[in-house]
Write a protein that binds this DNA or RNA. Sequence first.
DNA 1: CCTTGACAGATAATCGATTATTTGGATAGT
DNA 2: ACTATCCAAATAATCGATTATCTGTCAAGG
Lengths: 245, 245
Amino acid sequence: MVADDDGAFAPTTEDAPSSSGFLDDGKNTIGSQLASRLREAIISGELQAGSKINLDKARKTFNVSLSPLREGLARLISDGLVEFEDNRGYRVSPISLANLEEITTLREEFEIFALRESMRVGDVEWEGNVMRALHRLNRTERDAARPETLERWEELHREFHLTLISGCGKPILLHFCRLLLNLNDRYRRVFLTRTSGDRNVNQEHSEIAQGAVARDLDYACDMLRQHIHRTGTNLRNHLATKGIL
Amino acid sequence: MVADDDGAFAPTTEDAPSSSGFLDDGKNTIGSQLASRLREAIISGELQAGSKINLDKARKTFNVSLSPLREGLARLISDGLVEFEDNRGYRVSPISLANLEEITTLREEFEIFALRESMRVGDVEWEGNVMRALHRLNRTERDAARPETLERWEELHREFHLTLISGCGKPILLHFCRLLLNLNDRYRRVFLTRTSGDRNVNQEHSEIAQGAVARDLDYACDMLRQHIHRTGTNLRNHLATKGIL
DNA sequence: CCTTGACAGATAATCGATTATTTGGATAGT
DNA sequence: ACTATCCAAATAATCGATTATCTGTCAAGG
């Protein structure tokens, strides 16, 4: 009746803070931890898109009180992953073809803008960060058979794209881009368990990164745009094929 | 000790739902009402930028409990008007020259994009809405001596800019633009009590709107860009002059 | 005189219980 | 049979009290 009889959430052994007590990622409060767990649950598809979130059930599932639960959900609204209506509660943001297409379009628009700015004003440290993020991503295997590698890859992939544009010196823009990546990742996690065969994604990332640190504005932007566009097309096909919606 | 001994917030006689009971703007819950009141308090400068929000004091000021207060504040985070840190509480987002410049740049980028899209796919109803918003705005006097006219003008001005781009069919993009307008309005409300003399803002709005409904893409976008840019420059000067920061 | 640690007041986070709202179904009237 | 109205269960919102965390101050030790 308490925590884990509802298989949907399956917490991964992290109830006790464990011995390596120091260096907590800033996830101090229950509300913060919940936000993280819920975010992962939504992006990974564990929580179905469009479904209603029953506060009482969630409260029992996570074994917490209402206050931190609402707190956590409220943060996911900022991320665009959860919607809310007065007296009607929370629900997981629905997915749709139109939504995916908007995300792709906006990513093309904003990320390219941010990349261009990064190349214009980014410093050497930014360049270093990009190369490091690229290396770590490319050296990480993505094995559909082992979910933990998928998660790890997703994390690094996300990190790469964010690092790429992190030199732009525009926090609000970065916030928007992070948000769009969140939304986009959900589609990928749900529909793509592996990279589609006809793409060498590693190479695409390398081309973008190398163009970026070489400050070859047009080349890098073009590569990034194509990269985002291809991803969008792939996801659209999967969405259509699997007949969701 | 309770509601209105702290002059800062001065609620405008809206405790009782009054007789015209139907058609409540959807601001049902205390949390929602608080979000609105706080948003207005922040944008109007009533709550100083960068200042800490003491939950206990706010609770007493508004005469509510913690839960709805946090609820309301959480929503303002999505709006970029409030920042939050675990165990450290909430604070009004600070203002700065860099922040203002980013907002202006992003508005130029995003609003122009949204306007172009609106002109591309907007329907006749959109055109009508634009003309109506323009008319209502231009017919509203902005008298620095009477604060209520300022508020009214701000509301209509904001409405105009949002309507202008509302035809684009991209909800996420609109959300971003609304957010940027929020942030921008705060600077204007604080620094400009009246239009600067060398501009005919009414005419600027008219030019943009007419270009938009005539689907003269380049003209309308250019007018809008100039409009945003001028506003940015004005605000920057005021910010520098008044020596904030 | 400076640093370190402990204490106390202030502040934030959480909980359990209570109140308000919504929703679906049953009932009465046409 | 069909609609409208009223109940009751489900669900969301709010409250008051409790617990946890932080922050500044002061004293002891170096």
